[in-house]
Amino acid sequence: MRARHGGPAFRRLSLVSPVRGLEARDARVTHNNPNEDHGQLLMACAKGDQGALQALYRLEGARLLGVVQRIVSDRAVAEDIIHDAFVNIWTKSHTFDAERGSGKTWMFSVARHLALNHVRRQYREVTVDDVTAEKLDAERSLAASAEIEDSFDWQGRGDLDRCLRALGPERRNCLFHAYVDGYSHSEIAERLDRPLGTVKAWIKRSLHTLRECLS
């Protein structure tokens, strides 16, 4: 188990906002135009314009460093990854396809996956097969507490809000410990004090729930 600095996720308990709808709408308004800019800047990078890369760095460098540092829990490693991420963004900018997602999403994916590759390479985990996971889940599901609270302030940020609401707080916590903290299955299991198989099954089912909700 790797050391985690601080664990800020656990200090953020849920605050249900009374103006949830407004927040969601605002988020969309403020994110739309910059997304188009990101895409255009990436296309300029593909044409060899280093000024465009610098503009992208000014727009997203701090946010990307935050996201990466949260996953790798080490400032120097995080800076190395941001360096590699921007070099990758530069060299792969010609593969960015605006039809398949926004430029901002593309940049965050590049940086996040470098960070995830780093932590997964360092901490290989013992895998549990799915059948065992299912069995453990059946045994333990009754024991799962219904009183767990949200550890993440997730509302009002994206279109997935509506579907995330369909999951219980503990399953949302699983998803965000993975997505935001970069935790492995076993790290989540340890953090939530749940069996590994239960956590694996929860995540899989949560993905199913989200997919059905979106379709």
Binding site: R12, L65, G66, Q69, K104, W154, G158, F176, V180
Partner: peptide, 10 residues
Amino acid sequence: TPYTSMVDPV
């Protein structure tokens, strides 16, 4: 990706 905004910038 929108949920990465839960993380404070550094």
